[in-house]
């Protein structure tokens, strides 16, 4: 599979359209609907508890074009959260008990108001997590962002699909591994990932193909040993995340002839313990234009919250959003397969 240089949307590809993706994911087949499978574990319909994580997509622009990206992000994407919408987020957070703010993208750093927003959230005494692709920290105009995040005690969560260049570059583009190593060195020098430091650096593994992730604990040991031995690098935790059958990864599954087998694997690997711990139960996902979703994947499929919950930041009501019934589809099997998957890795 060739490396992309632009998003699917830039080329007007069919699967850049959420409805086209949903037609494939939810087509008639032998798999039980996710809701049936979930309700069979005896928990009733999938509903939320209190919101613990306020996850904000700051925009779909990215300096990278990874093959598996569920956002279809890239340099050509123009969707960026405005300062007015960021202010709406701040107004909500100021009145809320929510403690964690998870910033994602695209590359969240590419939002022109990134620094201002992070500083304002920190003033509210909220914990800030940034899903940084590492390579952006080496780009001109962004060279002081690592120091800025250290100064604000931002937790950094970064994709590094393998501890060697081969798999990493296949998924994220040639040269990505070496750039990531340089960026990790920069972060380590600032104190990130080190023992007795309050600067947290977590890494994310995604399978580089149509298979499920390895055991998180086992792979974390390999990462720690190899990155230290070969590059003198340290980090806190490794999160293993299952690839969701949407967007570019769905395109990969179909073009490589793996879609049917992968979906069957996800369904057959349904794990009730993982299902009880899915992150949508305590997460609210906000899109660049202020709409509300049960998770980042639903956001990309344009499936807003429903069942009486307000759909936009302008109508935000924490009481109505707490205990809401979660909007599901067949893609949800991605979070409940095997050891389960969330933005924080395994969940069982």
């Amino acid at each position: 599979m060739e490396q992309r240089h632009k998003s699917m949307k830039a080329f007007g590809e069919n699967l850049s359209n959420a409805n086209e993706q949903l037609k494939i994911i939810n087509q008639e087949n032998d798999y039980p609907h996710f809701n049936e499978k979930y309700e069979a574990i005896g928990e009733g319909p999938l509903t939320t508890s209190e919101i613990e994580i306020f996850q904000i997509n700051l925009g779909k622009m990215c300096n990278m074009v990874c093959k598996h990206c569920h956002v279809d992000a890239g340099p050509d994407r123009k969707e960026i959260m405005t300062k007015e919408t960021l202010q709406l987020c701040l107004n909500i957070l100021a009145k809320s008990k929510i403690k964690k703010v998870d910033l994602t993208g695209g590359a969240p750093e590419l939002n022109p108001n990134f620094k201002w927003f992070v500083s304002e959230v920190r003033k509210l005494d909220k914990h800030v997590m940034v899903r940084s692709n590492l390579t952006i920290l080496l780009e001109k105009k962004f060279e002081d962002y690592a120091q800025f995040m250290a100064d604000n005690k931002v937790e950094i969560i970064s994709s590094l699909p393998y501890y060697k260049a081969n798999f990493t570059d296949k998924q994220r583009g040639d040269g990505t591994f070496n750039k990531s190593i340089v960026a990790m060195k920069l972060l380590n020098d600032l104190g990130y990932g080190k023992e007795n430091s309050d600067l947290i650096l977590n890494l994310v593994y995604n399978p580089i193909g149509a298979f499920l992730p390895p055991s998180q604990a086992s792979l974390e040991n390999d990462y720690k040993r190899e990155l230290l031995k070969n590059h003198g690098l340290v980090f806190n935790n490794l999160f293993t995340i299952t690839n969701m059958p949407i967007s570019r990864y769905l395109d990969y599954l179909i073009t490589s002839g793996n879609y049917e087998n992968y979906m069957t694997k996800l369904v057959n690997s349904f794990n009730p313990i993982a299902a009880k711990n899915v992150m949508c139960k305590f997460t609210l996902s906000v899109s660049w234009d202020g709409y509300l979703y049960d998770c980042d994947f639903n956001q990309m499929l344009e499936m807003t919250v429903n069942h009486g919950a307000p759909k936009h930041l302008k109508d935000f009501d924490e009481n109505l959003l707490t205990g809401r019934k979660i909007v599901t589809g067949q893609h949800c099997y991605g979070c409940t397969a095997g050891a389960g998957s969330s933005c924080g890795g395994e969940i069982s």
Partner: peptide, 12 residues
């Protein structure tokens, strides 16, 4: 091959 990948091995 699938099991090796799912246990964290690579092509090498």
């Amino acid at each position: 091959t699938t099991a090796s990948l799912e246990k964290g091995a690579d092509l090498e």
